[in-house]
Amino acid sequence: MSSPDTPPSAPLLEVRGLCKNFGDHTVLHDLNLVVPRGRLLTILGKSGTGKSVLLKCLAGVLVPDAGDVLFEGRPLSSEDAPGLAAFRRRCSYLFQGNALLDSLTAWDNVALPLEQATLLPKPEIRARVRDALRRLELEADADRYPSQMSGGMQKRLALARALVTRPEIVLFDEPTAGLDPIRRNAVFTMIAHSQREFGFTAVVVTHDLPEALAASDRVALLVDGTLCFKGAPAEFQDSASPAVAAFRDSASHLAGQIAAIRRGEPVPADLA
């Protein structure tokens, strides 16, 4: 899949010394991360730790204040408009809120990236859109608008739109936010399944721990704008680092804390 002019050793996507500020507020500080080709990398972290910002920097939507994102060894910041367009054709982004265009039908939403950003002939576009809708079981809903669909269907439609361009990288921003546990499982199954089927590289941002650990090949933990853990899911489960432990074991702490509250003991300071 790699283009001939790049060394095969260069990782598909790499982050080097990335910093991002909003005003005086530092969101990301000196991040380094390698996204291995063909794998599913999960970035874990509490809400508001800058996971989405990191993902948007990876997609080239946000421009980092320092450092760079490298695609096949070439920094995105030095790409000209055609270079950036070429990168975007090979990369898809699944937004937390799906970001479907509400003025277009399901069919038109899926066809949009092909019609607007590629030069494919019309029959080919039609075949690909039909195929993408069929794979995500949305064939019967092609003429419906996103507002007429349930949350799960919208998520599937957004995934269909992300996959219809046959991307090499798909970035998932909290694909399971606001879903019940059964649908959460279904979404991760869908991601893992389509990743196997299409062979793309996936970066998933989430805070759903058990599902993420089960589905991913590598895990990174983002705390307060820095990555404090990078490794395999098994290493994450065994890690003794306090930050990892705090995130990993919060569920098991819960029982103890509830019991303490029921006994009438004071609420721990970090929760109050």
Partner: peptide, 16 residues
């Protein structure tokens, strides 16, 4: 609303 619901960002990530 399209800006708020990231539809404009989505267009950009699709290369549009």
């Amino acid at each position: 609303i399209q800006r708020n619901s990231e539809q404009i960002d989505a267009l950009e990530t699709m290369g549009i």
